[in-house]
Simulated scan of single mutants.
Amino acid sequence: MIEASSTLDLELLRTFQVVAQTGSLAATAEIRHRTLSAISMQMKRLETELDVRLLERGSRGVSLTPSGEVLLREARELLRVHDTLVSRFSGERLSGRVRLGIPEDYARELLDDTLPQFMACYPGILLDVNTDTSGRLARALRKRQLDLAIVLDHATGLEGGETLWHPTPVWAGPIQGAIHREAVVPLAVHPEQCPYRHLAIEGLDSIQRPWRTVFTSTSIHAVEKAIETGMAIGVLDRERVTTAMRALDESDGLPPIRRCVARLHFAQAIDVASQPAVEALAQLLRERLHGRGPWQRDALSGRDTGQRPRA
């Protein structure tokens, strides 16, 4: 146990946080600009000071023990409070560049509140936001073209990540008509590497329903319009079903859709000067998106409409 006079070195906690994000001591050494042996010694020192095992070491890297998971949550909060306090009283502000990737489907909601709030709180940080399909965001993250990204967990190839919320994908069709009953189901979808496209095709193939794509766009609003006007049906987050659409299910002859998980992923290497800025944004995303995702503002304001107003 830690003696009463003992204090934790915050640099050990910063290193531990990076290890938790990357799952690799070698990647942490690169990010922290230290040798691999130095990083390993820091982690052993932290475990010794706390008298608890924090990491499980394996052939594919390291993972957190249950005690490590607890420490990670506490360390994030401690470092956030520390950095905010230093910034407030020293006159210094967080700086650096943060490259964030978000699925296009959630861009409007995040731009309504969360990201403007971050920019207002940290004017010294250069925020670079990229919207795309989850698959393409995952690829950009692996290429270190992004520092962190929110992605849905199908067809991305990413492992791990922090769970933010559980989207509810549903079949959506126009309010009038029965286009979903056609012999060959017409689909409005995003391009390849979109999890919802993957779920739609996977579901139809599972019940051997023929399908064809009649409308493909990177814009969620264009896909929604194609559904509203009766060109096609598609898979949308339930919150995006407008008053000009209706949700469809097995009673309409369509297959059930597998659930998704929206997760926050970090790049394996983040510029050390930008690390505090990246963590500041990650913390805000955790606070604002955990549980209900970008629809959290409805819950906070006492409104839970279950349906997004028509644009």
Results as ranks from 00 to 15, higher is better:
I175T: 11
L148H: 11
V170A: 12
T163R: 14
P174N: 07
L164W: 09
A155M: 13
Q145N: 04
L146Y: 09
V170M: 10
E162S: 03
P167V: 11
A155V: 15
L158K: 06
A155K: 14
T168W: 10
D147L: 02
L152K: 05
A172G: 10
V151D: 00
A178R: 15
R144L: 10
L152S: 12
W165N: 01
D153K: 04
V170F: 10
L158Y: 07
G157Q: 12
G161C: 11
T163C: 08
D153P: 04
G161D: 05
I150T: 03
P174H: 09
Q145D: 11
D147A: 03
A149L: 12
P174V: 11
G160K: 12
A155F: 10
V151H: 00
L164T: 03
L146N: 02
L146V: 02
R144M: 03
L158W: 07
G177V: 07
R144S: 12
T168L: 14
G157H: 07
G157R: 07
A155S: 07
H154D: 09
R144N: 14
V151N: 01
Q176C: 04
G177S: 10
A149S: 09
G177C: 07
A155C: 11
R144C: 01
P174G: 10
L148E: 06
A155L: 14
T168P: 00
E159T: 14
